[in-house]
Design a protein around this nucleic acid. Structure first.
Lengths: 104, 104
DNA sequence: CGTGTAAGGAATTCTGACACG
DNA sequence: CGTGTAAGGAATTCTGACACG
């Protein structure tokens, strides 16, 4: 429970497949990286690798772009959203620490 | 609940990445496919694509091979295991159909 | 049977740049 | 600013085959 993210976060998808999955051109995907909206990893040889989370994020980005939202604004939104989620996670951690299942 | 498999089953990983993930050579991975131990999909251009499930399966195969189990025997084991899981799933489905949450 | 390897070709991905607006 | 495209090179993947055992 609460740790089913292992697959969703693993960076293993090539840009070509991400392009198919999202409908975005590779050019756009690379551009959003340049603008720090997304952070793929790299293989030894420098090929980009994305996670399913990245794919979802790219689809959100695409939706916003279609509505005319600039990359800068999208970045702001995305960052805000992340802070919020990180906070939720932390609170949950604190609760578990006091009332949750003991680890030993 | 019970349908978190979407990522695990999606075929999106190239053979090169699968090779890194499993430690198997591409030759071996292709051979296991030839022997029907695994069923990757293909991109438009014919490149193999694997799921995380396939990766796990390959690691099981690797373990068995290390112990000297032949591909034929492994295939038998894997098939048996699948039948078992399919059965569980079906039973669960029947229970839900009678006592589970209504769909309409 | 299971796996390595060299072979040749086709498709992928990468970067930096010019273009348009 | 956001995206297309042509450019040249490097790395990936594919198949069929020969090798060994």
């Amino acid at each position: 429970m609460g740790q089913e993210s292992s697959y969703k976060d693993k960076k293993v998808i090539s840009i070509g497949v991400v392009s198919e999955l999202t409908g975005l051109t590779e050019r756009k995907i690379r551009y959003y990286e340049e603008k720090k909206l997304i952070y793929p990893e790299r293989t030894n040889r420098g090929y980009r690798k994305y996670s399913f989370n990245d794919v979802e994020r790219l689809m959100e980005i695409a939706d916003h772009r279609e509505e005319g939202v600039t990359t800068k604004e999208i970045k702001y939104e995305l960052t805000r959203k992340e802070r919020k989620e990180a906070k939720q996670k932390m609170i949950k951690g604190q609760i578990n620490a006091r009332f949750g299942i003991q680890k030993n």
